[in-house]
Amino acid sequence: MSLAAAPSGLDANNLSPSLSELLALRFDAWVWLPLILVGGWYFVAFARSRKTSPNAWPIWRAVLFGLALICTVIVTQSQAITLTLNSMALYMGRLMVLAELVPPLAVLGMPRHLKISRESALGRVLSVILDPWVVLALWVAILIFWNIPAGFNASIVTNTAGALLPGLYLLGGLLVWSVILRPLPSIQGRSLGNRGWFGLLSGLPMMAVAAVWLYSPKVLYTPYVSALCLWNLTPLQNQSISGWIMMLAGLPGMAVALVQLMGWLIELADSGTQTPPPPTA
């Protein structure tokens, strides 16, 4: 999944590709095979569950999970990945789909009848991995390191970093949305208020990076300083549009966090106004 590879199936001199040209699929076995395995495992388990307990695993959850897989294929296996050097905005749009669209679809697609004991080995591992402070530290590290000039430049010009960054954004997004949406309540004991505060804190670094891109008077990343950009945009316009893309992509998570905080405050208000039950005889 090299982001800096020469275009395949696209005219290198065409700086105004059509949507169909951008979305034309390619084949990378290292990406397709894991997605096929994950999708196969999920839908086999879904079919078995529907036979034994039709109401335990709603169809809409399978639809959302399927959409998550489709979006992942589109942003990681389309010809758009060959044009990274010509459009920072296109590159950032792909990363934001992996970080802010695919994860909530996948997490909402998980069945809620799965019970994992906190005392089991898997439960202990997941309780650490899904701890909000651990997730927040990892997410901030991904955002800060890969968006400073040295890290971002490396993600553009090196094949290893170019393939690693989309995976890190996907992993970070899955962890963040798993904390926010709490798909495993048996091992995730955080209250609505805690999850709301976490959502706000996890969204701030991305908003800060987006603001820097929006208001910077110069191009911050070396590969784009003199790049020939798609659709006759200048490198600075590309960077500003990337800022808007990142900011808009972070708004749904912030909105969910605010709703959770409002729900938590309402719970606090209700608990303080309820009349205590009469003493038992």
Rank of each mutant, 00 (worst) to 15 (best):
K51N: 03
S120Y: 02
N153V: 07
I129T: 15
T76I: 01
R61E: 01
V140T: 13
P149C: 15
A56I: 06
G162H: 04
L122A: 08
S78Y: 13
I70G: 02
E119C: 03
R118L: 09
I116P: 03
T82P: 04
W133T: 08
A161G: 10
L171E: 04
P149K: 15
A141D: 04
W60P: 00
W146Q: 09
A150H: 12
V157G: 05
A89C: 09
V102A: 07
A80V: 02
V102Y: 06
A99F: 09
P104F: 00
T52D: 14
A80L: 09
L168G: 05
A89Q: 11
Q77L: 15
L165V: 11
N55S: 15
T160S: 11
T158L: 13
L90S: 02
N147M: 13
W146I: 03
I144E: 07
P132E: 00
I116S: 08
L95N: 08
L98R: 11
T76V: 02
A121G: 03
N159K: 06
L64W: 04
I70A: 08
P54H: 14
Y91F: 14
G66H: 03
A137W: 04
V107Y: 00
A62H: 01
A89G: 07
N147C: 11
R50N: 05
V125F: 15
G123P: 05
P58V: 04
A161M: 13
L95I: 07
G109P: 08
N159E: 15
L170M: 05
A121L: 13
S53M: 02
